[in-house]
Design a binder for these strands. Structure first.
Length: 507
RNA sequence: GCCGGUAUCGUCUAGGGGUCAGGACACGUGGUUCUCAGCCACGGGACCGGGGUUCGAAUCCCCGUACCGGUACCA
């Protein structure tokens, strides 16, 4: 099995295309196949080497390594269409010689006019076939003398073109709705439909898995395979990825490219896991039933397991809406799974942006890693980690105190807390818990609301940030939870008592 | 216009001639004695419409509607 992903380097890697790449990769990896990366850069006006580099980087970031491609080579190269000009030219010449294609001298303006006319009259805007019956020798002569011409494929006037689509079943087109399309442009560059067929055939691609936007191109390509006496590959057309308004995902929906999601602080495994779930379901009925009984979330799967389960016949026919909320949830899950050292590494740039970290010394890395358990499980994205750490790096007791004052239930809770604290001094964690129980009885405030003002008050103490570090860490069962944390809590309680009983909260 | 594709909770989906139509995210309510996060529990929420076929249709067929794609010397 040989599959390929063939982006054109005209911009960033869109998540819809990333999903196409992923499905190809999943199929190859699940079946011991070969995954080929080919760059379709025949559109020289829009293609840039910069976006080619970006696409390669994005694919690597997602972990979608390719076996053959422009930078790694392989036995069926070159892997950039711009480097395959001669291949297209020779096949085009052969098709012309065999009368399966012909030179067309119509001008762009002429074509545009007949097109408009056809549309106005409600006819399909196909090429008229004007140059179809020109004398081949005469045409060849005109081309030889330097006249500009395109090469057009001679599409049969009637009959059906059908192909088997691995996700949709049999698809049938009537040949008479297909105009004679361009194989080679007047400047010698191949047109898309021609280049893909030559490339897929010469690269021995066995299944072509691509976006649904190519489904109408497929009959043209099937015709080309036939004309060249080649066996077409198997096809599979993936539905598109849409925005929340059901329009194709575009810039106005916010982030659309892999690079943007990366920049927002999503982990690659989260993006990959999420993307796989648009239009494909790896979940078995047994797992579903288990989930209903409180089992593990069946949609959280490592990529190798997804590859093992992947099959095209379970791919959905309909388009899917990209739901960033679900991606965010998935990202949170993977952030909780990630080692603190890795998270520290991934978050570094955001922390550096705020001037909180400098050089990546061993000490600095260790310190940042030690902060990760406090925050990583409670934010959606890496970029938000910095916000959560603000209270450590941007210490501001006055601001925190103001926040307490603003709490609706803040004062009664804190007053009751202060009262309790005076009694036994809150010497340890147990005493603190007991005191909070009494505060609850006294004020009638319960649940999270009970602790919130106290937490802010803790933040408002003047002891410095390090003690507050300990507070959430205890809850997390992290390495910080033992020993040190408890000590800090005790000392912070004493400070809280001082603060509450003093005037710092009045205003 | 023409050609093609698609249609199950708000979203991603499972299922499929007789099911309480299942799961996930989101949402709502409650719980949580150390975060307005998280976590836990509970809850509301769907088979596009109309005809057929059938004892029975969400499931099969037809028509319609909506949405998407194509109809290029873009890919």
């Amino acid at each position: 099995m040989r599959v390929r992903f063939a982006p054109s380097p005209t911009g960033h890697l869109h998540v819809g295309n990333a999903r196409t790449a992923l499905f190809n990769w999943l199929l190859a990896r699940g079946h011991g196949g070969t995954f080929i990366l080919r760059i379709e850069d025949t559109d020289i006006e829009r293609s840039t080497t910069e976006s080619e580099r970006g696409i390669l980087a994005d694919l690597r970031w997602m972990g979608l390594e390719w076996d053959e491609g422009p930078d790694v080579g392989g036995g069926h190269g070159p892997y950039r269409q711009s480097e395959r000009r001669e291949l297209y030219a020779s096949h085009a010449r052969e098709l012309v010689e065999r009368r399966r294609a012909y030179y067309c001298f119509c001008s762009a303006a002429e074509l545009e006019e007949t097109r408009k006319l056809a549309l106005a009259e409600g006819r399909p805007p196909m090429y008229s076939g004007k140059c179809r019956e020109l004398d081949p020798d005469e045409s060849a002569g005109r081309v030889a003398s330097g006249e500009r011409a395109v090469v057009r494929f001679r599409v049969p006037d009637e009959g059906e073109v059908k192909f088997e689509d691995a996700v949709r079943g049999e698809v049938v087109f009537s040949a008479d709705v297909i105009g004679d399309f361009v194989l080679v442009r007047s400047d010698g560059r191949p047109a898309y439909n021609f280049a893909v067929v030559i490339d897929d055939a010469l690269m021995h691609v066995t299944q072509v898995i691509r976006g649904e936007d190519h489904i109408s191109n497929t009959p043209r390509q099937v015709l080309l395979y036939e004309a060249m006496g080649m066996e077409p590959p198997a096809f599979a057309h993936l539905s598109l990825v849409l925005g929340p308004d059901h329009a194709p995902l575009s810039k106005r929906h916010g982030a659309t490219s892999v690079a943007e999601f990366r920049a927002k602080g999503y982990l690659p495994e989260a993006l990959v896991n999420y993307l796989a779930l648009i239009g494909w379901s790896p979940v078995t009925e047994a797992e579903q039933a288990a989930a209903a009984l409180g089992g593990a979330n069946p949609e959280l799967l490592p990529v190798d397991e997804m590859a093992r389960r992947f099959s095209l016949d379970r791919v959905s026919h309909s388009a899917g809406v990209f739901d960033e909320a679900k991606l965010a949830w998935m990202n949170r899950h993977y952030m909780k799974q990630a080692a603190p050292e890795r998270l520290a590494h991934e978050c570094w740039s955001w922390l550096a942006e705020r001037g909180w970290v400098g050089e990546r010394t061993a000490e600095a890395r260790q310190f940042i890693a030690s902060l990760m358990p406090i925050t990583a499980g409670s934010v959606d994205r890496l970029a938000e980690v910095a916000d959560r750490l603000d209270f450590i790096f941007e210490w501001d007791a006055a601001r925190a105190a103001a926040l307490v004052a603003a709490e609706p239930e803040g004062r009664p809770v804190l007053e009751a807390f202060a009262e309790e604290a005076r009694g036994d001094g809150l010497v340890d964690r147990e005493a603190f818990r007991a005191a909070m129980g009494r505060v609850k009885d006294r004020t009638g405030v319960k649940g999270k609301a009970l602790f919130h003002p106290v937490r802010i008050a803790l933040t408002a103490t003047e002891s410095g940030p390090e003690l507050d570090l300990a507070v959430p860490a205890i809850d997390r069962g992290s390495r910080l939870a033992s020993g040190a944390g408890v000590k800090h809590v005790v000392s912070s309680h004493e400070r809280v008592v001082q603060i509450i009983t003093s005037s710092s909260l009045t205003s």
